[in-house]
Design a protein around this nucleic acid. Structure first.
Length: 210
DNA sequence: TCGCGGATAGACT
DNA sequence: GTCTATCCGCGAG
């Protein structure tokens, strides 16, 4: 299985779910920073009101979505950055946003990059995750995943107890049909899921025993 | 532990 | 000038 196979030939929703439990890592040149993906969102292209490619919108800013599956779409908003992977074939502008990870390597560096923020505050949101990786530019926008310092482990995956589908976060509510569509997928009970309530956190973080 | 509002920067009209 | 696929600090309970 290579990246272009993984990120094409099936619905983007399915790809988003399949990413949960897999390891995302970033090589910053000094060490490997990594974590288990626990939250993703699917964006379904021109007909999806919440997608950056809604209605065929295309510019230098969102060109990444139009790349073949397995290429990166790094987007900046306010002072933060987002990590997206394009899905489907070239010119079919769908993609998956990785929103949160549970750190597994390089935690000390990630805490430092986050100005000392600790625990689940390190990576429980898309902007926070990229800050923890120490990314402050769109340098890897449009790059193929395989030619970038980012890696997603397609060979291994932690077993998840339950995948919870939820509405996406922070999108325009003017079209409730798309705003309420459950295209956000989370590992139920994992503490690094954004905005999870403390009482909903499970002791096993939502994973079956490995 | 919660809900609210301000900060802040790039893309687009 | 307007609008975000956000984050953080603050004050109330």
């Amino acid at each position: 299985m290579n990246y272009s196979e993984f990120f094409t030939n099936r619905p983007t929703e399915e790809i988003a779910k399949d990413l949960l439990g897999r390891t995302l890592s970033f090589n910053n040149g000094q060490e490997i920073l990594a974590g288990t993906i626990v939250e993703t969102e699917a964006y379904l292209g021109p007909q999806d009101r919440a997608a950056h490619s809604y209605n065929g919108r295309r510019s230098q800013a969102n060109e990444g979505l139009y790349c073949p599956g397995g290429h990166l779409y790094i987007y900046s908003q306010r002072q933060y950055f987002f990590f997206d992977v394009a899905t489907q074939e070239k010119d079919n502008p769908q993609g998956v946003l990785v929103r949160a990870i549970e750190p597994t390597a390089g935690l000390e560096t990630m805490i430092k990059n986050r100005n000392g923020k600790d625990g689940r505050l390190v990576t429980n949101g898309p902007g926070k995750m990229m800050q923890a990786f120490g990314i402050h530019s769109r340098k890897w926008d449009l790059a193929a995943l395989k030619d970038s310092p980012f890696t997603i482990d397609l060979a291994n995956k932690r077993q998840i107890e339950e995948i919870l589908p939820l509405p996406r976060v922070g999108i325009n509510q003017s079209d409730p049909k798309w705003a309420n569509k459950k295209l956000r997928y989370v590992v139920a009970g994992n503490p690094f899921v954004s905005d999870i309530k403390k009482k909903d956190i499970k002791l096993n973080h939502g994973f079956d025993k490995n």
